[in-house]
Design a protein around this nucleic acid. Structure first.
Lengths: 305, 305
DNA sequence: AGAATAGTGTCTGTTAGACACTATTAT
DNA sequence: ATAATAGTGTCTAACAGACACTATTCT
């Protein structure tokens, strides 16, 4: 089968139009990969579509290959079918530190290792649909309230030992949730603090998920610069100090509180004052805000280069 | 076949282990999609792998579905195999206007319409490899000198009438080239000026390539803001005015020349003075520069919001 | 000489960054 | 009262944007 799949095309020698059971099975697989198939005679006992020009003698085929005559121009290079998956990098802030949701794999390969939640695309779904569904299934989070953003597609031929599986990574930002987790699936989902050891130590994460996580983190950091997405980490109402701590957790650097205050208050549409205040801790009570309509932060929030 | 593919799993009723030719063909296709398959009896006359727990009676199967007992836990949700492709949005500047490379499709579907260059992934390739190869094949451009950047993956189930084909779009920037085009393929490749009519008029571009082009343009515009990629549009040596015209062409707005001059000269590592000057036109001769090592533009180039 | 293009000087308003300072609470 | 946290005032340096001006070529 591997030899067949690595060929440029398939030529079926079927005297009398007869095709064996095994050949029929192989043809099904070949067909599904979109490879070019030619027949010595029209197949009689299987309902296969035979496009014009694909039934020809070996002589004609050879000529077509050598001369590239117009009759055989349909010889296509081999294609590879792949199983698309969607993996989700969902960040949140717990104890003012950045966390990512990871599951412990219950099956081979990489059984017992940590992995990003995700799964295979299903009939009629786009990858965005898949990501939303998996997020809901594996975390119990209401996916409609958490916007997903496509990051990157990973397609290295050996990235998954099970075969040709390409994955598209999505980024999501969640507010700090009260321990809702591990909803439907048997494997445990849990928040893990984001730190270098997650990807520097190759043993902890399955597949190429270390690389994916790293790139997603870079994207998230850049998003904070020129969008108002940081508010997604917070609850419905939040103080400016809470918002600042989001930036500090994601960027990993301290931010000057007075200047931060002026920056976000001065950006029209970022914050809407609720008029309420937050008490219960020492210090002057902080004003509480909700998200404004602005999504783009202009001019951007600078982080010292 | 469509009904089969949209099912959750396949149950093969094969008395005596006998499987017909047509069924064998269909099983090949089903197998290639990675769907779950169960058998009433072990298949005898086809070399199909039958994992443990997939041969069971209809009664057992029904129980497994209803109760979710451990024996049947292997029922997987249906997966969908897809044919991945890479499409390339390659921009250049001609006559100080932004152009994109498009090919005229020579085959159905969308025969005669304009489309982005691209093609199917091949065995052993990553999508990045595919994009590089297709760029070289379809344009004759030396792909090693033109960096490709992944933009987005398009996976809507009906985006391609031929079936489940998902495409990953890549962005490339080329200097103005002396008409090297349409290298190997029969269909013509040509530079087309980028303007709204390309995507507003749905008839001109094939598939969802209008949407892809639009998103790639947005990405390119944003890249000019905070990277030095604009120099990729220019030749090996260029003047500051040429660089400014790149920004004007991509952003579609005029830029104040003196301020632009100061901005790029003041960004360390952006430009390296060659000491030479450009003559042959009226006006003070312009200094010629080559690209510096800097890739990030900090602080970013602002475009009035 | 005059047109055309390249590049500099200079002014203004805005903003980031630093930090001193005021405001308001819990204990 | 003291500690703690929120928020304001103010200064400086850098920078964007505007535009007058100088520099150097071609025709």
């Amino acid at each position: 089968m591997e030899k067949i799949f690595s060929s440029d095309f398939v030529y079926v020698v079927n005297p009398g139009g007869y095709i064996g059971r095994t050949t029929a099975y192989e043809l099904g697989r070949v067909h599904e990969r979109g490879m070019a198939v030619y027949y010595a005679e029209p197949p009689k006992d299987i309902p296969i579509e035979v496009p014009a020009g694909t039934v020809l003698t070996a002589r004609e085929l050879a000529d077509g290959i050598v001369c590239g005559t117009s009759r055989i121009k349909a010889i296509r290079r081999p294609r590879v079918a792949a199983l698309p998956t969607a993996d989700i990098v969902i960040f949140t802030i717990r104890d003012w530190r950045l966390h990512v949701l990871l599951i412990k794999r219950g099956t081979e390969p990489y059984r017992g290792k940590l992995a990003l939640p995700g799964g295979f695309i299903r009939p009629g779904e786009s990858l965005e649909d898949t990501a939303k569904r998996e997020l809901a299934e594996e975390t119990g989070l209401d996916s409609s309230s958490i916007p997903l953003q496509q990051i990157h597609t990973y397609s290295h031929p050996e990235r998954d030992p099970r075969g040709r599986i390409i994955t598209t990574a999505f980024l999501a930002i969640a507010p700090n949730l009260p321990e809702v987790m591990g909803a439907t699936d048997a494997h445990r989902a849990d928040w893990v603090e984001v730190e270098d050891s997650l990807w520097l130590n190759n043993d902890r994460l399955a597949f190429d998920h270390g690389e994916i996580l790293q790139q997603a983190l870079g994207r998230a950091r850049r998003l904070l610069e020129h969008t108002t997405i940081a508010a997604d980490f917070c609850g419905k109402v939040f103080t400016i100090a809470e918002l600042r701590k989001v930036y500090e957790a994601v960027w990993g650097i301290p931010i000057n509180p007075p200047n931060f205050q002026r920056k976000v208050r001065g950006t029209k549409g970022f914050l809407i004052d609720t008029g309420k205040k937050k008490t219960g801790q020492p210090g002057r009570p902080a004003e509480l805000f909700r998200r404004g309509p602005a999504r783009i932060l202009y001019p951007p929030m600078m982080r010292s280069e």
